[in-house]
Design a binder for these strands. Sequence first.
DNA 1: TTAAAACGGTAACAACGGATACCGATTTTT
DNA 2: AAAAATCGGTATCCGTTGTTACCGTTTTAA
Lengths: 229, 229
Amino acid sequence: MHKEIDPAIRKSPLFAGISDQELLYLMNCLRPKTYTYKRNDYIAVEGSSFDSIGILLYGEATVSKENASGNRVIISTLKPGSMFGEMFVFSGQTLWLSTIQAQKNSAVIFLQRDKIIGECGNVCPWHKKLIWNLLKIISDRAIMLNKKVEYLTIKSIKGKIAAFLFEQYSTFGSSTFVIPMKRKEMAEFLNVSRPSLSREMSRMRDEGIIDYHMSAFKILDPDRLKKYL
Amino acid sequence: MHKEIDPAIRKSPLFAGISDQELLYLMNCLRPKTYTYKRNDYIAVEGSSFDSIGILLYGEATVSKENASGNRVIISTLKPGSMFGEMFVFSGQTLWLSTIQAQKNSAVIFLQRDKIIGECGNVCPWHKKLIWNLLKIISDRAIMLNKKVEYLTIKSIKGKIAAFLFEQYSTFGSSTFVIPMKRKEMAEFLNVSRPSLSREMSRMRDEGIIDYHMSAFKILDPDRLKKYL
DNA sequence: TTAAAACGGTAACAACGGATACCGATTTTT
DNA sequence: AAAAATCGGTATCCGTTGTTACCGTTTTAA
């Protein structure tokens, strides 16, 4: 039986709302496997078989994928507490679609698909919480992607700007707000070039619809802004 | 206790791999609530509280959403067996984000969040299967959306065509294949206009990279096709 | 505090993609 | 089999967006 909880584990939203004591029981039930890797070791290789969620305990690792033109592209970097594979483990996918490589000496704890759903004879409340958390994580991802698709589907830059500013407007609940992005990031988020974004924004300013300075925005005429949507 | 299984229920992937007999037990455990609606009745109203997945048993209903400019837009139409709310029920979302309205006399069976995770004392195998199915459905949606984002992020039409054809190429495993779409659908999928799609495709044909007739395609020069990615 | 780097706005130009209209090919309906 | 509807390709035109380059402003580092 596990004796102590790795602090990286506590960072994972997968175990949110589960006490240390419960987590010990849960680990006993999940019987996870921990492996250690040296710098540059492969943690998972694209195309190899796959049945677990992984959580990085310490170290650092990169997730990369071969794109259609045959180049390997780093998609993301994993830090202690980062989870990977959670979107695929219940999708029917049996092979890794990306390669994960340790960039420093690292350790990963693997939670098997079947054990997550539960093999322990009785339903433990912490196990239910685990499943709830997993459902929440994947649902939130799907919702986020759905929103991203909405933005990307808008064709005109002004339409994107309007949608973006309305989103901020309604989350801040005020017509003046500061966005948490630089222009370059905003341009990347909206999938347009930075000069084009600046040009369209200044046109909207000329029209008296919005005003802004750096990251501080003010919506002057919400009705006309709406028309761009 | 439920005595029989509604045939619409059987269509839902949520209950895939669960036998009729098991499904009866499961229903006893889930204790779903069924409501009937007359044409034009509201099944759910944007902003009202929310704790269940719904499955349409018979009839027809529309899912609509108010966009930022204040117009109501129909997102999808539900048919018998269609599920709704599954992406939100475990997301922490407590209010409906869309309005669902019956278009014909309809009935809906609601499965409560808490009951799905399981309140029955012992773990029944069919209950595990249910959770597995739900995880699979939401994961598949997230994966699909992820792929969609990949396509939408590509800026040039030729790039989109190349990515699309490579995808078909690798799934069919052959350089000749028939796609399951008409031009109009393909254009919508890639988020471009149909004439623009035709123009770019015929340019690529002129260049000797691909050949096609209606829905039948042939990749002539994969290497040059790759360069568009 | 000053120098360097990063950030943001602007302008000119070219490339790209959308709108529209039309026509022939293909499929569906009768 | 003929008529109608749908589908797909093409041409023209024009608005939109990206590219590049430059410069002033703001932030960061020395």
